[in-house]
Structure formats: structure tokens, C-alpha cells
Write a protein that binds this DNA or RNA. Structure first.
Lengths: 359, 359
DNA sequence: TTGTAGGCGTTATCAG
DNA sequence: CTGATAACGCCTACAA
């Protein structure tokens, strides 16, 4: 099959010139020509400078500067089969510590030479799957997810292309090496024990939906298990469900307070609910913790500044993000690295929790 | 932190196996072969289905499914010179409304078929420039930035490659079509007028640094100008500078309250400072607004829930993000679109502001 | 140390 | 409507 080889570009450019712009953007070729070297040398000067003589390196640097050349990531990615890109899918950014975690991930990745692609799943496994699939098409080198419970097709999809990923904000010893975070269940057992040790017996719970949220489920399990081991349980009427807003916290605290008997301690499933509950309790004239103990999960800044500082579980969101990024980049670069990580959830005891009223 | 060695998880990778893999990853070619058509047809079936006969379309769909083919974004980007990717550089994510805005941008872009690349500048123009440059190398189709004041090389860099971009959270009539946001100066003039109309004369200011932050500067200008037009001014000792924390707000409120004469109204440059100032004032036993008026900027959820709800300026962060994304994608697709947009900053008057004490 | 040349996986032009 | 094939811009053996 006699095929004419690629004609030297630039020799003849048809005036019609289809999609190519008139002023061809400068590329490696132009730089090479300007510096009087081959494209290979320019490429090396960029990616592996020490292997190029100082002389040429300098000439090339000048040419790059003059022409204002910027390497083309797509071409590089196509050639190396690496995009230097990591995708992260978070449920949302304005909830709990996710913003901090995202920031930490970005910063860490940036330092390691990676770029962060970000998407939100809105707690919808289907959407999460779609976002992940899009990331795969975009050619990300790895993924950071939240939680362990994903769409059934998600992990297979990743495994098939052996795409590295790490689940964050969860930890359980079952799943080796794929998660970075606190043991949500243990954290809430700890919190529940704290309250039970103070003498509480009637517990209320204000939690976000556990639908598509294994962290939330695990937290509830923690409360249940800790209570069960003492022969206690949360009465149905002392269980209230909201989402992630202060308004929900207020509303639900008010409704729990209308039960009889009332709980003496209320455990909130997230920081927003806890803040709302505390503010509503104060607005209702309750004395915390004399009349009621209220505790939360996640130590956002406001927690320690409310008129009654709130007892909570501190989860190091930024650190989790940082470590997730490190684990991932290490794995990508074949470096040895801790692949299993349990973040220490710390009980932060403040004024909102204390012994139950005597009555 | 429990460090565990990498455990081989199932996937055995032959030691030889370089990138010239035995099982070449499936590509357009393999799909074409399996479907008995040309690669061109497969490509068309994907990107322009209506131009392919239903028959072939079906056969191709089957082949794609069977082989589990996923198109390669890098190759596509290289070929089309479009990455379907937008870069956003925010100062931070955990400040003010940036998380909401980012989420809105992501959602909007996703719907339009774009992916979001995210980076943080930490209020450092050099870092911002570096992040932008990296995004340009990554081949983003457009950029979303915050503010108008950038590194001097930034805009030229973008102009040279005529890369579309939009500045967010700012608006001024000078710069046509490149910004989406509120007029920060006007917003604080409005706020200042509100207080002055109530009869305040001695104003205090608790603000974040204006260094590398044109929004913060504009806000201070607004306060100054509004006061100046009434022959008023902030006394030096009534001016305190912090950053974005509740703790700063508390500290600075306390220090302002030690001056003599004291201000009767304190304007805070951001929501975090305002929340801190209000909480500290309450902790000090001050009655708001009887003893002191305190106002903020940005209407984050907590503002309306504090024991004394806080008067503030509501900036529609999510909407700004959404519009920025729309403007950008419209421009990229040659669609006609409003290119200049001023977001309405709304004065939200709550209980923390009122007439000055009589004394 | 440097150059030559053959991909990387898609798209798009052009001819059937 | 379909097929063949030249780019897209860079990387990287392999050769010199």
C-alpha cells in the first residue's frame, strides 16, 4: 500500500486550511527549531533536565521563554498514559469538614504535582457513579471518595481498570488499605459511654438520614451498641431525624423536649444539628448541662464559641484529606506507603455535657 | 496512626509488564473491529449518533458494552483541542460562601458537560498565578477566579492564549463582561448608611487584611466613603484588623471595647469576625443593640440563629458561582450570553443593629 | 549527550 | 451513511 508519508509540516499550508488556525500555536517543534535542537532534546530539557547539557538547556530555556511555550497536557497525557490528575467526589462541600478536607487534598496534590478534579454526589450513589465514570473518562490517575458504601458498579468499574482509590472519613479493619478516617461507630460509642458514665439513662438522638450514608449509620450503631451493652436503648419517641442544618437542629430539639419523660442527654449526628439544638435549648431557657446535656459530632469552629461550648467528637478532616492524597500519590508512584489508616477521633468535652438532673 | 505495609490486594501484576502491555487496553479500534465497522463510525456513533444508521449504532453499542470501552479523554482533548474542563482558583474553601459557590459551579459545569479543576490561592497572588499556569498547561477551556486584583502577569497570560475567564465576587462597571458579583463598596455603603441613619456617629471596624484582597479593600472604601459623605470617619483606635476566625472577632471586639470613647456601632468585614464579635459582646454581658450595634458581611447560616441574630449583607454566593459557570460555558460554545453581571447584595437587618444608646 | 521516528487513542476531512 | 487516514503535540525507545 503506497502511502505518502507525512509531509513536512509548514512547507505547504493550503490556504483553505481546515480546522487549524492561521497562527499555529507554538509547540515543541517550534521551540526546538528556535533553539536549533531536536524535539526530543526539548522534551528532555523539560522533563529530565540533568540529562541535557547545560549549554542546550540554556538555549532551550531562552527559546521557551521567547515563544511563550506552554506544554500541552493532553498530548503529554496521551503519550505517557498519565494525567497527573486525581478526582475527588464529595457528598457536598458546605457540610461538616468537607471544605477543609478538600482544601487539604488540593494543597497536598498540588505539591506532589497533581491537579484536583472535584465533583459532588449530593449523597446520591447514582450521581456518584456518574461522576466517577466521568473522571475515569477524563483519565484521572486515582480517586478519592467518601464512605465505603457505593453504587454496586462503582468498585468493579475501578478494579477493572485498576484505578487506585481511597475511601475517606471511614475506617473499619475489614477493608484493608482503602480507607482513611475515623471509626465512626467507635467514636460514638466513646461519646455515648461518656454520657452514660455521667449517669445518663434516657438518651435522645437527633441525626441526619442514614440513607446512602454509611458514616451516619455507623454512628447510630455506635450509640445503640454502647447503650445495649448497658442494657439501655433510645426510645422511639426520643429519636428525631433531620439533615444538616441548624434550623433542623432547633426544630428537632424542640420536638424532643415535648416528650414525656424527656431525655436527659441528646446526641446529635453532626455539628450543624448540635449547634441548632444547643441554640434552641438556650433560647428555651434551658440550662446546659444542668437541665440537659447536648453533644455533637465534628468540631467546627463555632462549637467552642457558643454561649455554652459544645461537647463533640473532633475528626481531623484536613489531616484525613492530606493523608488520603499522600496514600494515593505514593501508590501511583510505586512508593511504599501506609495503606491503612485510622484517624483518631477525639472526644472534646465541653460545658454542654454533664451529669443528668437529679429530680 | 497505624502504619501497615502495602498488602497485595488480589491484582497480580507481572513484573515485566511495562506499558506495552499484553492486554492492550481496549480502544476505539478494538470496538470497531468487534462491531465490524471502522473507527470513524464508532467515533461518530458516540459523538454524533444521528448520523449513523440505527443498525450500526446498535452493533456498536453492544461492542462498547461487551468490551467495557471507555473513551480516552486525553486523546479526545488532543484531537479536538478542547478539554471540556474549567479551572477555578479560590482563595480558600472554608471561608465565607466559597464552599457554596464552588458546589454551585461544579453542579452547573457538570450539567453542561464540563469538569471542574479546583485549586486554592491562599490569598497569595504568586500562588494564584502558578495555579492558573498549571491549569493552562492542563488545557482548561476557561477559568473562574475570585476578585479583580491578580498578579500582573496573570491577565496577559490569559489574553495571549485567549483563554476565557471570569472574576467572581466583585463587580464594578469599569470592567465590562469579566466579573460576576456584588459591588462590595456599594454594599458596605449601604450598611454604613443603615447605621448612620439610625443615628450612629462613632463607628468601629473589625476587618480582615486588605492585602491581596480587593473585595476587602472595596468594603473598607465603602465604609469610609459613606461616612465621609456625612462628615464622619472611623477613629484609628476604632479600627481593628484580624482575619477570618471567630476567635479573632472575639479578641478584637474585646479590644475595641476598651477604647474611650467607645464606638456605638461596629462593622465587621466578614461573617466569621461578626459572629465572634457578637458572641464576645454577649459573653461580656452587653445588650445588643441597646449597648452596641454589630453588623457583618455575608449571611452564613449561623448568623440568623445566634441568641441575637446578626444584621448583615447577603451575597448570593451560590448564584454567583452558577452564573459564572454559565457565562463561561456560554462563551465557550459561542452562545450569546450576558457577559456583565452585578449580583444584588441585600441588606438583612436583624436584631444586632439598632439606634445608639442615648447617654 | 543528541537525533530519528514511531506511537499514544480520537477526531475530522475527504472521498466513495 | 461509511471508510481510510492524516493530524493532534508530546514522549521515548533506539540509534548514532
Amino acid at each position: 500500500m503506497a502511502r505518502v508519508k507525512t509531509v513536512d509540516r509548514g512547507t505547504v499550508i493550503a490556504p483553505s486550511e481546515g480546522r487549524g488556525d492561521v497562527r499555529r500555536s507554538v509547540g515543541l517543534r517550534e521551540v526546538a527549531q528556535a533553539a536549533g535542537v531536536s524535539t526530543a532534546t526539548v522534551s528532555r530539557a523539560i522533563n529530565n533536565p540533568d540529562v541535557v547539557s547545560a549549554d542546550l538547556r540554556e538555549r532551550i530555556a531562552v527559546a521557551v521563554e521567547q515563544l511563550g511555550w506552554v506544554p500541552d497536557g493532553a498530548a503529554r497525557a496521551l503519550s505517557t498514559r498519565r494525567s497527573q490528575t486525581i478526582g475527588a467526589v464529595f457528598p457536598a462541600l458546605s457540610i461538616g469538614d468537607f471544605a477543609h478536607a478538600t482544601q487539604a487534598i488540593q494543597s497536598e496534590l498540588s505539591q506532589a504535582g497533581y491537579t484536583l478534579l472535584l465533583a459532588c454526589s449530593e449523597y446520591d450513589p447514582d450521581l456518584e457513579l456518574r461522576q466517577v465514570r466521568k473522571f475515569v473518562e477524563r483519565g484521572v490517575d486515582g480517586l478519592i471518595l467518601v464512605g465505603q458504601a457505593h453504587h454496586p458498579e462503582l468498585v468493579p468499574l475501578l478494579r477493572r481498570r485498576d484505578m487506585p482509590f481511597v475511601n475517606t472519613f471511614v475506617y473499619d479493619s475489614q477493608t484493608h488499605g482503602t480507607c482513611v478516617g475515623p471509626d465512626n461507630r467507635k467514636a460514638l460509642m466513646m461519646m455515648t459511654d461518656h454520657l452514660a458514665d455521667l449517669g445518663h439513662v434516657r438518651f435522645g438522638v437527633i441525626a441526619q438520614s442514614t440513607r446512602n450514608n454509611d458514616r451516619a449509620s455507623a454512628r447510630l450503631d455506635g450509640v445503640r451498641d454502647a447503650l445495649a451493652s448497658r442494657g439501655l436503648a433510645v426510645r422511639p419517641q426520643h429519636f428525631a431525624m433531620g439533615e444538616w442544618s441548624i434550623a433542623d437542629g432547633r426544630r428537632l430539639l424542640r420536638s424532643l423536649w415535648q416528650t414525656d419523660p424527656k431525655p436527659t442527654a441528646i446526641i446529635c449526628g453532626n455539628a450543624h444539628l448540635a449547634v441548632g439544638a444547643v441554640l434552641e435549648a438556650l433560647a428555651m431557657g434551658l440550662r446546659l448541662p444542668a437541665d440537659l446535656s447536648i453533644v455533637g459530632y465534628d468540631d467546627i469552629e463555632i462549637m467552642s464559641h457558643l454561649p455554652v461550648p459544645v461537647t463533640t467528637v473532633r475528626v481531623p478532616g484536613a489531616e484525613i484529606g492530606r493523608i488520603a492524597a499522600q496514600v494515593l500519590t505514593a501508590r501511583l508512584e510505586g512508593r511504599d506507603c501506609a495503606v491503612s489508616f485510622e484517624a483518631e477521633a477525639e472526644l472534646v468535652i465541653r460545658a454542654s455535657s454533664g451529669p443528668p438532673p437529679l429530680d
